[in-house]
Simulated assay, not measured.
Amino acid sequence: MMGSTLRIFLGASLGTVLVVSPGWAQPVSPQAKTVCTAEAQPDRLQDLSSEGDLILVSGGLAKLAGLRLSDTPPYRDQALAWLRARFNEPVLVHAVAGPDRWNRKSVRIRSLDRTSPLDWSHGLIETGLAITDAGLDEVFCQPELLALEATARERRLGLWADDRYKPMDVNQPERLRDRIGSFALVEGRVRSIGERRQRTYLNFGGHWAEDFTIIIPRRTWKQMSDRGMGAEALKGQRIRARGILQSWQGTALSIVIPDMIERLEGGRLPR
């Protein structure tokens, strides 16, 4: 049975299929099930704002859910050119969340006028023009983006040819401090776990006041524990986390979407 797979359909309107191990299949929360399978609507991309946000013909601003574009040239320029090449294509737009504080909806978009319909998030991630990031989304509907990103990173496509985007080790504190305020991928082994009433802290060094820490709010920690990603599953594991690096007792990342933590030994953590 270990060689078999279980297929879970997410967002039927976008035709996305996630293949996972049967032992990792977890009940989907009512919120995630509702959001990720909501009906998509026809639309077109009319323009891009000066900040790179999508301006849809139907009105309002939007951003592609589950990813972030590079903030440095030439990769940002290449990603924006990729999007401009799709102006006025007929598409299906599936709203995942929003509006956020910048009045943007998080959306998934699929082109309609192609022999093989193109999921825009897939296209940007697999060519190395974007990084998987669901940190500002309410739910993460496309976990397959992590696998697409891993392939692009291994092939050194797009921004992954640049050392500044490659995962950093927790044992490089100076490099981490230099990246405070920036989005980063950080890898290391969980040394200890501090569970508190409102937050849980994953500690990666012997000096918690100086080393790297992952901060997880209570709600997210409960979601992780319900998936089998609690303290027993994480302690001693080498993992990769992603988010905005912040200055806190050394350096830290705050994680609100469980999928933004990946296990580096033995495959993906449970979903």
Rank of each mutant, 00 (worst) to 15 (best):
R191T: 11
W102F: 08
R7W: 03
S254V: 11
S121I: 08
D100N: 12
P217E: 06
E262D: 15
R164G: 02
P74W: 01
G205D: 14
Q223D: 14
M168C: 07
A40E: 12
P27C: 12
E154I: 01
L48P: 03
A97E: 13
V186H: 04
G15W: 03
D100A: 03
A233D: 04
E265C: 02
L245Y: 00
I257E: 13
G15H: 08
P117W: 00
L202T: 13
R84A: 04
D71P: 03
A233K: 07
L269D: 08
L83M: 10
L64K: 05
Q223L: 10
Q46P: 01
A79S: 14
L45K: 06
D47V: 04
W102P: 03
R68Y: 00
D71W: 00
Y165S: 15
G188P: 10
W248H: 15
Q249G: 13
L234N: 10
L148M: 12
R156L: 10
A150C: 02
R44G: 02
G236V: 09
F212Y: 06
L124H: 01
A241H: 01
D133T: 13
V91C: 07
V256A: 09
L145M: 07
I239Q: 04
L48M: 09
A85H: 07
D162Q: 05
L124R: 05
L145T: 15
E265W: 01
A152K: 12
C141P: 01
L80A: 06
I109N: 02
T213C: 03
L159I: 11
V186T: 13
P258D: 14
Q78W: 00
G98R: 06
M2V: 08
R189W: 02
K222D: 12
T151Q: 11
D178H: 03
L92S: 08
Q31L: 10
E174F: 00
G243N: 11
L234R: 05
Y165M: 13
F140T: 02
R191G: 05
S106F: 02
P270N: 05
M1Y: 02
F87H: 09
Q198L: 08
T220C: 05
L124E: 07
A38G: 10
P42N: 04
